[in-house]
Amino acid sequence: MLLFYQVLDGLVSGSIYAALALAIVLAYRATGVINFAQGQMAVFSAYLAWSLTTIGLPVWLAIAGALLLSVVVGAFLERVVMRRFESAEPLVGIVVSIGLFISVNGLVSLIWGTSLTQFPAVFPAGSIELGDVGITYVALGTVVVLLLVIAALQLLFMRTRLGLGFRAVAVNPESSSLSGLPVGLLLMTGWGLAAALGALAGTLVAPALYLQPGMMDMVLIYALAAAVLGGLDSPFGAVVAAWLIGVVENLAGTFIPAIGNDLKIAVPLVLMCLVLFFRPQGLFGRVEVERV
């Protein structure tokens, strides 16, 4: 029974890592840059949602509003900041995203302060009884929301013209541009969608963690690990890897006393190193072919 609850807990935290990892993968597919600021942008969105609740909106409406605003913020950052560096060395892109990370963190502290803020509960308290196990609504809701997101993304990418455009731009921006796709607009939308996914991660995690400028820092590390482990350009891989990381970490922290709570983060990272050693392209990534 303890095992069951630990796996469930792992899936719940894994779902939150997955939402942010999906955001990182989407932004990466759009612009080829790993956005280190993704977690910090999620914090910004979570605070936005909180501000919307303070003016009297119900929490679900506030989150929806924050998601929409995040799309605008993400698209804006892509157009105004990131666009200039997309053709530069990848390292420059990384550093620009680090600059964004610091700036957004500073902005959040400036607007909302650095003290802990309570975020209203998204899901009702209590749990649903299935036979002799109880699953809390929070756990159930988090996992279900993530599954819905995956389904929506799948529909978007595979069944819509917009999704087709995204995939085309991700594979070959130049040819896409020559075939008349609005590449710039698609990149902006890609970053906007990524920001919305990050916002979802932020608002899902906020009730448990309290709002504070650094609340996504650890989640970002897990999400980065999940994105890379999954293969970086594979949304499906990112989700599977995130769940794997959540579960493995929780089990190791609980059942191996020598690891305990402080070192449990090492377990998924070591696992990631091992997997990458044998599959450098990640679990579901494509092998990179170099042309000489």
Binding site: I34, P90, I94, I221, L224, A225, V228, L229, L232, D262, L263, I265, A266, L269, V270, M272, C273, L276, F277, P280, Q281, G282, E288
Partner: peptide, 21 residues
Amino acid sequence: RLRGYALSMVTLALPVVAVPL
């Protein structure tokens, strides 16, 4: 054996483990 971001993530694991150690 690794390239690009996979390498960055493996190296990122170092400080993450080093602090609790």
